[in-house]
Write a protein that binds this DNA or RNA. Structure first.
Lengths: 144, 144
DNA sequence: GGCGAGCTTGACGTTTACGTAAAGTAGACC
DNA sequence: GGTCTACTTTACGTAAACGTCAAGCTCGCC
């Protein structure tokens, strides 16, 4: 793995402005501020302007990935909190976390099934489509 | 495949009321009416009440699957229209349809990547979680 | 004929995830 | 010192996907 959300691993000193991040991920600054408001990002403040670090960039990437999979921002926040609090807590909390993880996994498994089902259906459409096209072209070449 | 959206394959004469469908798929009747309003379902009318056939049931299943994958109702309607119009149209239309199919496929491929990436991240969290738990239990058993 | 269960059509309300416009600030450059 | 660019906050607007009443029809049953 090339990157992680673990705070101990953010050893690069690169920072980003809100505009840089926005261009990089093809979202608007407004979106990034909104994600902060929703507790998904926690940029540093230098004066009154926001300064984003690697940790924020990785979180944003995770957020957008979650969005592409249809997760709500609330669900994504949950996952991020799993990340941030993975190593701590008492036994009960850790076991609860493992339960939540297992549940998330089941959700992903179902999404995999759904994708395969949809792929099969697209195959079906494509087959019929190609059949029609072949018939059309055969008729055309015969008529010349 | 056990079922398809192809109209020629709906040879079963089973019908459903809106309430039956709603219970089956764990949605509200309101949701089903809304999907009709959005052009995703086209139930028969018997008097003033709606009568749903196999075709509608399959469409509803497809719709909910799409939703679980984060598709908008507009996108799902596109897919359904692909189904309904797959075998017809002139050459240009058929080629266009194949292009659209290829694009949908690319979207699904990306979702697969996203899912695998998220699974890896959950693995990561789980590892750290288990490490903490093991350390906790080891300390506990040593202290007894 | 009254009554409940299930259906119908409106119509307005709500949540999520931002868009957009207004007005102000702060640093870089000429 | 003025202007440009990029940032800031505040606030109202909006599209999607339904939820939530309200009011009325209609069928079966006692």
């Amino acid at each position: 793995m090339s990157e992680t959300l673990s705070p101990t691993a953010s050893r690069e000193r690169r920072t980003y402005s809100i505009g840089e991040l926005a261009r990089r991920f093809e979202v608007t600054p407004r979106t990034i501020r909104f994600y902060e408001q929703e507790g998904l990002l926690e940029p540093e403040r230098r004066g009154q302007t926001r300064v984003y670090h690697e940790k924020d960039r990785v979180r944003l990437a995770l957020t957008l990935r979650g969005k592409r999979l249809g997760f709500s921002l609330a669900e994504i926040r949950e996952v991020i909190q799993l990340y941030d609090h993975a190593p701590d807590g008492d036994e009960r909390q850790l076991r609860r976390m493992l339960d939540i993880l297992a549940e998330k996994r089941r959700g992903l498994e179902r999404q995999l099934e759904d994708i395969h089902a949809l792929q099969n259906e697209l195959d079906d459409v494509e087959d019929r489509c190609r059949d029609s096209l072949d018939a059309l072209l055969a008729r055309h070449s015969r008529d010349t």
